[in-house]
Design a protein around this nucleic acid. Sequence first.
DNA 1: CGGCAGGTTGAGCGGATTCAAATACAGTGG
DNA 2: CCACTGTATTTGAATCCGCTCAACCTGCCG
Lengths: 252, 252
Amino acid sequence: MRNPWTLKMEQFTAFSDMEKRRLNDLVSGTREHCAAGQDIIPDGAHSDHCHVVLTGLACRYKSLPDGKRQIMAFLIPGDLCDAEIFILKMMDHGVAAISDTTTALVSASDMKSLLRETSSLGEALWWGTMTDLGVLRERIIDVGRRNAHVRIAHLIYEMLVRYRMVELAPGDSFKFPITQVDLADATGMTPVHANRTLQKLRADGLIAFSQGVMTVLDTAALKAAARFNGDYLHLDRVHDPASVGRRAGDLV
Amino acid sequence: MRNPWTLKMEQFTAFSDMEKRRLNDLVSGTREHCAAGQDIIPDGAHSDHCHVVLTGLACRYKSLPDGKRQIMAFLIPGDLCDAEIFILKMMDHGVAAISDTTTALVSASDMKSLLRETSSLGEALWWGTMTDLGVLRERIIDVGRRNAHVRIAHLIYEMLVRYRMVELAPGDSFKFPITQVDLADATGMTPVHANRTLQKLRADGLIAFSQGVMTVLDTAALKAAARFNGDYLHLDRVHDPASVGRRAGDLV
DNA sequence: CGGCAGGTTGAGCGGATTCAAATACAGTGG
DNA sequence: CCACTGTATTTGAATCCGCTCAACCTGCCG
């Protein structure tokens, strides 16, 4: 009954049982599977279904005329791939699977009516979009004003916080099937330099990485190295006394 | 009766007279003036009013702990400063006036009900947010994968298209009160390098700049230099046969 | 065993930065 | 009207972070 979409949005607000059931029903319909490396939604496409990532890792990307590629965002379970689909004529970027993924299809009309609801659900959806904006802005700061070391540390730390939201980072370990080429495309650097930077983070004892699993060994040190401030993720419930136990917010 | 907010959203869809009147009423209430250099909305602030830029130029920015600053977006007349205000507890970045600005205050409750309307208005607002996302993604590509020359050309060309939307770029000239320091903060480079890059664009006869007014001398050449593709702005009405006359879409 | 994708290492180059100083320019007050 | 002041732009020279190119290694799989 607990799905990553609900878990993520619960970081924003507490839902009633009925609301949770509602959300759960929405992602319990048609599923789609996509193999690593394939497009979940190609650039320029249109469809009348939204995709919610349930398992695996995906990314938003855009290929440039000169062959370069920029990854604008990583999408983990609970993330919505294409909130724009029911308004815009076509996607202005592609969404690709990095590892094998399963996505839930939600019809545009369901999503539309959800958005217009006066309940917490409509607000939660809006919250999701607003935090997406925040994450994008943070990525601009990354590539614009942070050096390679801080930049990669920041990306990894953000992934940790986000994976924790959906309870997929036990022991501060999480799946990280991202190749160094992908990482370079996301951080706006070359694979070679991404490699050297990762090595330094490992040598400093901040992270460990093997078999596609990233482990953050020293959260405090990594957070400091990344100059991380998580306000932009708007995990509002962190400050909610009713929220108990160890949550993603502990890291922010 | 024609205000920049309506003009901008008309790039997405045609409104009925009643809808236009509705939009106009919303920005005809309280006005706020802000002097150049001052914060319109400080980082971390909260209010229960949204700000719509009516005149002047503003920017979204974030100051980093080490004193650096990153400008994430420029806001021209018709742009909404803080769509998040009625959901999120606080702003995760600041909005500052670059030149003197006037903004219209729209109450959060008015905005909220607008968003829930089944008319074109709710969709238009959603469209605005989605294009903001698109512009941010494009900025990530800018700083991540384009060199200084292309990057600045791209920024200027985008400003031209956006100014045209709100009919503020007669003869391909528009107000550009952005200092080279601002420009550097927006493009993720140093003022010195921004200066040299601008000089090259002028030497190549692509742009002219004096007295705070930018003139694009050769739109085709600038577009080519910027490798510009305007799909991300989603000026859907460009393809609408009912749309007549020279509009921003001509450039996209 | 060969092939291939991903990761690692080295050396040289170059775009952008840094620091510093000079120049232009607008506003202000004597 | 000019001297004065502060801000913005311009120029030069040295330095460095990250890029390029190229080779090599490693593990995996057919």
